[in-house]
């Protein structure tokens, strides 16, 4: 038996909500990691320890690409 249109809409909204939640969690994790990297980079820069700054920038770039990729997966909001 096919579920009714109301139930289908409810299931679709629930799936969309879960995916937004997952994307939000992923992006937030990446941004927190980037802020930690930035803190370490500033600390190293001010302390005269330049080793690792380039690696921090590269990891931050990967995090940025990942975050933008995740955000691209966010579709427009559907108003059912």
């Amino acid at each position: 038996m096919k579920p009714g249109p109301v139930r289908q809409r409810s299931a679709r909204r629930s799936r969309a909500g879960s995916s937004v939640q997952a994307i939000l969690t992923g992006v937030l994790t990446l941004v927190v990691a980037q802020l930690l990297l930035l803190t370490m980079a500033v600390e190293g820069f001010l302390g005269g320890r330049q080793r690792g700054l380039l690696a921090a920038a590269m990891v931050s770039a990967w995090c940025c690409v990942g975050a933008c990729g995740l955000v691209r997966r966010l579709g427009p909001r559907r108003r059912d």
Partner: peptide, 27 residues
């Protein structure tokens, strides 16, 4: 909304990368 907040996080991510890259480029 959560979507808007997530999109603003993407800008934060870009800004963090640019700041880290600027520090690395300075050295």
């Amino acid at each position: 909304t959560r979507r808007e907040f997530t999109r603003s996080l993407a800008w934060t991510s870009c800004a963090s990368f640019l700041a880290t890259a600027a520090l690395a480029a300075g050295t």
